[in-house]
């Protein structure tokens, strides 16, 4: 007897749960040759707002965790990713229509980048922080802190690697993320969400929306409880309008990047979503 496959329902990932879009909408995901793969959830404005609420609720816990702890949790994500690599490779082949070896190379790189960023959690503060020699009896220290809630439009031409390259650096310092996945290749983002959900990452730290970036991104760009906007994958959208909307609450905005090197691993992707805090401690006069 042949086994009749049990296909997965791809839903959203909000606050650690996998809800359908509150709008009830889905859209069809197909191979490049047009073969049906799945009906992905088509997130709405309300879903985006729910995701921001979940992310906001997760910030203090994740930002307050020790850097060592964040590093271990992120490393665990890489471990679980490795264990499920066959599923990722299979999804990449089916979504992107690439060869098995190309899919394997993409998963390899995604895992390696995740590990690279995991190792930064307890180091970037030392690299970008400062003890400042002020002219007075003060101990003056500058440290980076997470910006808060970061909304990301993930690279649209990559199913897994682009997503990982944008999400991982934002998590390093302790931000919580709402990411709009690739519209064409959304399946890997939900499978990655399953990895995140089983890797000790606190719920709400990463929230994944699938659907139309053109529809969802404006709501995130204008949302007053979003602190930063990573437009890395928004090059094909009216991204200047998104930046203008973000100006209302003076969000930090990271511009679109195009091409295969988009969101290449860099310390600047971590620091882009940090704030610089300087504390003056008074020394006693003895």
């Amino acid at each position: 007897m042949t086994h009749i496959a049990v296909p997965k329902t791809y839903k959203l990932f909000i606050g650690g749960a996998f809800p359908r879009s509150e709008s009830g909408r889905t859209y069809e995901v197909a191979t490049p040759k047009g073969v049906f793969l799945a009906n992905a959830a088509k997130a709405s404005r309300k879903d985006a707002r729910d995701a921001v609420v979940a992310a906001r609720g997760a910030v203090s816990g994740w930002a307050g965790a020790t850097a060592y702890n964040r590093g271990q949790v992120l490393y665990r994500v890489a471990e679980v990713l490795e264990g499920r690599r066959a599923q990722f490779e299979d999804e990449i082949v089916r979504q992107e229509g690439v060869s098995a070896s190309a899919a394997r190379a993409q998963v390899d790189e995604a895992i390696d980048r995740w590990v690279w960023y995991a190792g930064w959690t307890d180091k970037f503060t030392q690299v970008v922080g400062n003890a400042n020699p002020v002219a007075g009896p003060y101990f003056n220290l500058t440290v980076p802190e997470p910006t808060g809630v970061v909304a990301i439009v993930a690279p649209q031409d990559s199913s897994l690697l682009g997503l990982v390259s944008a999400v991982a650096p934002a998590l390093v310092s302790g931000n919580a993320v709402v990411v709009v996945a690739s519209e064409t290749f959304p399946l890997s983002s939900i499978t990655l969400a399953e990895v995140l959900a089983t890797s000790d990452l606190p719920k709400g730290v990463v929230n994944v929306l699938t659907g139309s970036p053109a529809e969802i991104a404006p709501w995130l760009a204008s949302h007053a409880d979003v602190n930063a906007l990573d437009l890395v994958g928004a090059g094909a959208l009216d991204w200047i309008d998104l930046e203008i909307a973000a100006a209302d609450t003076l969000k930090r905005v990271y511009p679109p990047e195009n091409g295969p090197d988009a969101a290449a691993p860099a310390l600047s992707r971590i620091t882009a979503f940090t704030e610089t805090k300087t504390v003056w401690h008074t020394k006693a006069l003895i």
């Binding site: 007075g136 003056n140 003076l250 704030e275 300087t278 504390v279 003056w280």
Partner: peptide
Amino acid sequence: AGVIWANTFNRFDPASPFGGYKE
């Protein structure tokens, strides 16, 4: 907040970064 003064206030120095969070 970007600048915090403990047991002092309104101190400035060229070696000390100054600037804000949020709006």
